[in-house]
Design a binder for these strands. Structure first.
Lengths: 230, 230
DNA sequence: TCATTTATGATAGTATTACTATTATATTTG
DNA sequence: CAAATATAATAGTAATACTATCATAAATGA
C-alpha cells in the first residue's frame, strides 16, 4: 500500500483548521505529536503549551493551525473517519455479494487497529485509541449543532450511510439501518474500552475477537439475514 | 409512589463525595442546581463558581461537598444508575416470564425519561439528558482504573449484570449478554442524542419510539428468542 | 442556657489554562 | 535580492480549579 499510494492524502473539512497542517513540516509535526501526547496524557490534560514544548515549537505557532484543542480533536477524528471510508472502499472492492461486503465492512469498522504505516505522520494504532476514548468529546458538546452545520461530521455520517446502503441491499425493508450501524460502531469502541478498563461490562472469549464476532452476529440476525453466511 | 416512599433515598458510593449532599439543605441545593446548570450550559462550561452564584452560596462551600466537578458528575451518574436499578426492580416485580421481564427492562433502560417527581431535589428528566450527553466524560478519563478500583461504577456494572442474568435465563448459551446490554444502553443514549442533533445517524419512524423498538428487536433476535413475544 | 462544635460565608491568593498581541527573526518565493 | 510569509520569543489577560484563612451563624449537648 505504501508504495502505490505514497502521495495519497485524505480529505478533511477545511473549516476545522486555520491553516492546513498537511501543508508544512510544522503542521505535520503538530498532528503527529498531538496523537502521541493525547494518547499519553488524555484529552483533558492535553494543552497546546505542552504540545509546543514537546515539539520544541511555540504555543502561538500551533494556534496558527488550529483555533483550539477541540478543533484539533475534530481534525483527528475527521481524518480517522475519512481513513476508515478509504479502508472500506478498498476492502470491499470486487466483492459482489452484499452479505460478504457487509461482513467485511463490519470487521473493518470494529476490529482492533494496528499500526499500518501508510501515512508518515499518523500512527493509526494510537489514533484509534484516541477515537475510542476521546471522540465522543468532539460531538457531545453544546456546539454540536453549529459544528454539524459547518459539516464537521460529514465523513462519519457518510460512512454510516454507505454501510447502511449495503444493509438495504440485503434487506430493503429493514427499518433501522442507520441506528444499527452507528450503534455498532460506537458500541465496538465502547467495548474495546471496557475490555481494558471495566471488564465486567463485556464478555471476553478466548481465541476469538469477541467484539467483531458479536457485532457481525447482531447485525445479520437483526436484519434477518442468514448467519453465519455459509 | 411519592406517598409510599417519601423517605426513600438511593445509595451512592460514599467515596464520590466529601460530605453527603443528602445530609443538608445546602447539599441538596447543590445537587438540584448542578443538574439545572449542567443541563443548561454543558459540563465543560459548568464551574463551581457559577453554581455558587446560582444558589447564592459560596464556591468554597461547594468544595466541602465535592472534590471537583468530575466527582459531582460521578455522583449524579451513580445516582442515576441506582435509580434505574430501583425502577427496574419495581417494574419487573411479579412478572414471571423472563421474556416479558427482559422486554420491560429494555423499555425502562432505553425509553425517554420524564419528570417523575419522586425525589424533591432531582429532576429525572434533566438528569437523563445529562447522563446521555455527559456521562461518558465520567469514565472516559485517565483516572478510570483508579475510579473503578474505588467502586465508582459499581451501580452501572450491577445493573448490566442483572439484565444479563435475565438473558441467560432465556438462553443460557448466549455468549455475549453483557456486551449486548451495555451496547444497547449506551447505544440508546447515543441514538437519543443523534435524533436531536445528528439525525442522519438514526432512523426516525412516525408514531412509535423507534429507539425502544429497535433495542428490543435487536436483543430478542440476537439471543435467538421469539420476537415479537406474542 | 451557655459553651462548643460544626456548617457556611466572605475574601484572598496561586498555578494553570486558553487564549491574543506584538515584535523579532528565519525561510521561501518571485 | 526584495518582499512576502512562517515561525519563534515574549508578554499579557481573563477565567478556571482549586486552597487557605478567618469571621459568623446555626445546631447540639451537658
Amino acid at each position: 500500500m505504501q508504495d502505490l499510494f505514497t502521495s495519497f492524502s485524505l480529505q478533511v473539512n477545511n473549516r476545522v483548521y486555520i491553516k492546513n497542517p498537511e501543508s508544512s513540516a510544522l503542521g505535520r509535526k503538530i498532528v503527529e505529536s498531538s496523537i502521541n501526547l493525547i494518547d499519553e496524557v488524555g484529552f483533558e490534560a492535553f494543552t497546546f503549551r505542552k504540545l509546543g514544548l514537546e515539539i520544541h515549537s511555540n504555543e502561538a505557532s500551533i494556534y496558527r493551525y488550529f483555533e483550539s484543542k477541540y478543533k484539533l480533536l475534530l481534525y483527528l477524528t475527521s481524518w480517522y473517519w475519512s481513513w476508515m471510508e478509504y479502508r472500506i472502499a478498498f476492502g470491499l472492492a470486487n466483492i459482489p455479494a452484499p452479505e460478504e461486503r457487509l461482513e467485511k465492512a463490519i470487521k473493518l469498522l470494529t476490529e482492533n487497529i494496528e499500526l499500518d504505516g501508510s501515512f508518515e505522520h499518523i500512527n493509526e494504532y494510537k489514533l484509534n485509541k484516541i477515537v475510542i476514548a476521546e471522540s465522543s468529546k468532539s460531538y457531545m458538546t453544546k456546539e454540536v449543532d453549529q459544528n454539524n452545520k459547518e459539516g464537521f461530521f460529514a465523513g462519519y455520517k457518510q460512512l454510516v450511510g454507505r454501510v447502511s446502503d449495503i444493509i438495504l441491499e440485503i434487506n430493503p425493508t429493514y427499518k433501522y439501518p442507520h441506528m444499527l450501524i452507528s450503534t455498532l460502531i460506537e458500541g465496538a469502541h465502547h467495548q474495546r474500552f471496557f475490555a481494558q478498563h471495566l471488564p465486567r461490562l463485556t464478555d471476553a472469549v478466548n481465541g476469538e475477537d469477541a467484539i467483531i464476532e458479536f457485532s457481525k452476529e447482531v447485525t445479520f440476525k437483526a436484519i434477518g439475514a442468514k448467519w453465519p453466511i455459509k
